[in-house]
């Protein structure tokens, strides 16, 4: 009887609000909501405004116009850097995914104790500086480094294998940095998959590997998509790792930006490069957020 009563109460409507009051209602901010203002103003002044100053610089330095943007595509050196940036980011993303997926999958299978160990392993590098890790990789991988000398001492190789200042060096370094960002969203999705679905598929006559491919993998795709996006977008903007582990041939856009500012003081050109990177980043994020709740993945990162 109270159900019917509820709907009857709902039918007693006040008069529809006017357009002006609708606007006023939309713009309303309460006491709690006002607390967002200090940070919002802070970020607009310190973070957003400089980005616009940079944008403006890309069109006005040294003279007004598109010349900084046309300059990027006029010289093959710079086009190569752009191509290399996307290529490296793509390779890094692929390798990261190949490692992160089985790792996250094993995390879902492991006993709670081992799962914690695996989680800590992922999180420790997360909290040690990229600089320290990249530096350590240099020490490990360089011609006179730990791995080469150990392998030589063991007689596995005659000559040291050169990794530093090559694409493999860059990829090894960047994948190490990117792994945590890929493992966490994939694991978060896999954890929610009901394992009985796999048993059900096997019960219906599918082979275990078939059930895995046809049931588990598709269900884990949202996490995989988030991982791909985060990894790729981050990889586009890396500076430290490629600068330390790569050679002149592996220059990425981040390094080019720093070079242009610190060595030749071409602010406008650097700003144009940065603007292009920024727009690409936002486009990718915007595109992806159409398909899944990115805010949730960002918020869930901690």
């Amino acid at each position: 009887m109270s159900v019917a009563a509820g709907t009857r109460a709902a039918l007693r409507q006040p008069a529809p609000p006017s357009f002006a009051s609708k606007i006023k209602n939309f713009l309303r901010i309460d006491g709690w909501g006002a607390l967002v203002l200090p940070l919002l103003v802070f970020l607009i002044l310190v973070f957003i405004l400089p980005l616009f100053v940079m944008l403006q610089k890309s069109f006005t330095d040294p003279t007004f116009g598109w010349q900084n943007y046309t300059a990027i595509f006029a010289q093959s050196v710079y086009v190569k850097v752009l191509g290399n940036t996307f290529l490296t980011a793509a390779i890094v993303t692929a390798v990261t995914l190949l490692l992160a997926f089985p790792y996250a999958y094993l995390m879902t299978l492991a006993t709670p104790k081992w799962r914690t160990v695996m989680l800590v392993l992922v999180l420790v590098p997360f909290w040690t500086s990229i600089l320290v890790r990249s530096f350590a990789l240099v020490l490990l991988l360089r011609d006179t480094g730990v791995l080469n000398s150990l392998a030589q001492d063991a007689g596995l190789i005659a000559e040291p294998v050169t990794i530093i200042r090559t694409m493999s060096g860059v990829v090894i370094g960047m994948v190490q940095v990117a792994l945590p960002f890929a493992v966490l969203p994939i694991y978060a999705t896999m954890r929610t998959i009901d394992r009985r679905l796999l048993q059900a598929a096997e019960g219906l006559g599918d082979r275990p590997s078939g059930a895995f491919l046809r049931i588990f993998v598709p269900l884990s795709l949202p996490g995989v998509a988030a991982a791909i996006l985060l990894t790729f977008v981050q990889a586009l903007g890396y500076y430290i790792t490629p600068a330390l582990l790569g050679g002149p041939k592996n220059t990425m856009i981040g390094e080019l930006i720093v070079q242009q500012v610190s060595t030749v003081l071409r602010f406008g050109f650097a700003a144009a490069l940065a603007t292009m990177l920024l727009v690409t980043t936002f486009l990718l994020i915007g595109l992806a957020s159409k398909y899944f709740d990115l805010q949730k993945h960002l918020m869930g990162q901690s």
Binding site: I44, P50, V53, V233, Y239, I257, A271, L277, L278
Partner: peptide, 20 residues
């Protein structure tokens, strides 16, 4: 806006604030 600093590459942030 509040979450943007997590997404914008640090190189861009560095350049922008340096210019500003």
């Amino acid at each position: 806006v509040l979450l943007a600093p997590l997404i914008v590459p640090y190189v861009i942030v560095g350049l922008a604030v340096y210019i500003a």
